[in-house]
Simulated scan of single mutants.
Amino acid sequence: MAINNVPLSEKSREFLEELRVYLFSSGKKEDEIDEIVEELEVHLLEAEEQGKPIEKVVGDSPKAYMEQLSSVMDIDTKTWFKYALIIILGSFSFKIIGDLLRGELSYSILAIIGHIVISGMFILGLFGAFRYISARQVSNVKQFFTLAIVGGAPFLLFFGLIFLDRSVETPVFHFGQIGSIIIGVLTLLFVAAISIWSKSWVIPIILALLYLPELILNQTGLEKTTVITVSLFITYGGLAVYLIFVNKKLNRE
């Protein structure tokens, strides 16, 4: 967008992007976010046309400005619940598909509750990290470590849950062959529906990279150690190639 052919400066564009992320991760309604960002964009363009810096519009503290805007906006509880449910069910789908490839499904109450709690903590941590990064001028290195901590913590917690589940006895639900098949089909339908809705095949691709290599290599007659080593190499190598591809695509756009 431009007024009198004067393009918005890079600093202003970055601020608008960070504001959008901050408000979204604060649970605000998307249509309200769009309205505020578009209105602010006009004010920034007018200020820049007059030679005024961005601080004349948003003040000296971007964080304080974002917090002030957020405080007067309603939280979109329905959308928050929808995304939370998608993330929790999505994390369950990874576990269910992996367990199905190893046999019938059976989960203890501790495992189910623990999985929901850890997924909820991940959601809160992720949105908190986005608010922290977007409201401050954080270096790329600090951004990486912040997101790495938020993304890595659930894996450690899930490993801890596995050991806790083995040492603490709670009632176990055995779904049997038919129940496992039904849950598996529902899980695949959920993954397909989410992929179509989000217009992204990232979940099926990650699932395929995680489980297909080991599944295929198990049919070759190779030793278990060799299967695990080669499958891990294919999985992480494939994920690296995919992330590089996505990064290049985003840069082109």
Rank of each mutant, 00 (worst) to 15 (best):
G90H: 10
F92G: 08
S139H: 09
L215C: 02
Q68I: 06
T146A: 07
L110F: 06
P213F: 02
N251A: 15
G114L: 06
M1E: 08
V230G: 01
K95H: 07
I109Y: 08
N251V: 14
I234R: 01
T220Y: 05
F127G: 00
L217Q: 09
I181Q: 01
R131K: 13
M73A: 06
L89T: 07
V21Y: 15
K11Y: 05
P204F: 02
A135I: 03
V241D: 03
I194E: 03
G179S: 08
N4I: 12
K63C: 04
P7T: 12
K56D: 03
L147I: 15
G237K: 07
A64K: 14
G179C: 05
V21C: 11
I203K: 03
I123S: 03
P213D: 09
L85H: 04
S134L: 05
F81H: 10
I75G: 04
G160E: 09
E214T: 14
I206M: 07
E48F: 07
A192R: 01
I244V: 11
G125C: 11
G98H: 06
N218G: 09
G179H: 01
P62M: 02
I178R: 03
A240L: 14
E10A: 15
F24I: 02
L215D: 05
I149F: 15
P154E: 06
I178Y: 01
K95V: 14
K82I: 10
I194M: 04
I205C: 08
T220F: 12
Q143G: 15
I216F: 13
L19D: 03
S200M: 07
F173K: 04
G90K: 10
V6L: 10
Y236K: 03
P154L: 08
L8T: 15
E55G: 01
N5I: 08
V141S: 14
V168S: 07
S93A: 15
Q177H: 09
K249H: 04
A111T: 11
K63N: 10
M1V: 12
F130T: 00
I3M: 10
I182T: 13
V57L: 06
A111R: 07
P62N: 06
R166M: 09
V172M: 13
E17T: 14
V37A: 13
Y211H: 06
D165W: 00
A111N: 04
L101W: 04
L243Y: 15
V150K: 00
F159K: 14
I36N: 03
S134V: 03
F127T: 08
Q143Y: 06
G237E: 12
L232Q: 08
V21P: 00
R20Q: 13
E253I: 13
W197M: 11
N5R: 13
R102D: 08
S139D: 11
E104D: 15
L69M: 14
E55H: 04
W197E: 03
V191W: 00
L215F: 12
L147H: 03
A240V: 13
I96R: 00
G238S: 09
S119T: 09
A153Q: 06
R166Q: 10
F158K: 02
I133F: 09
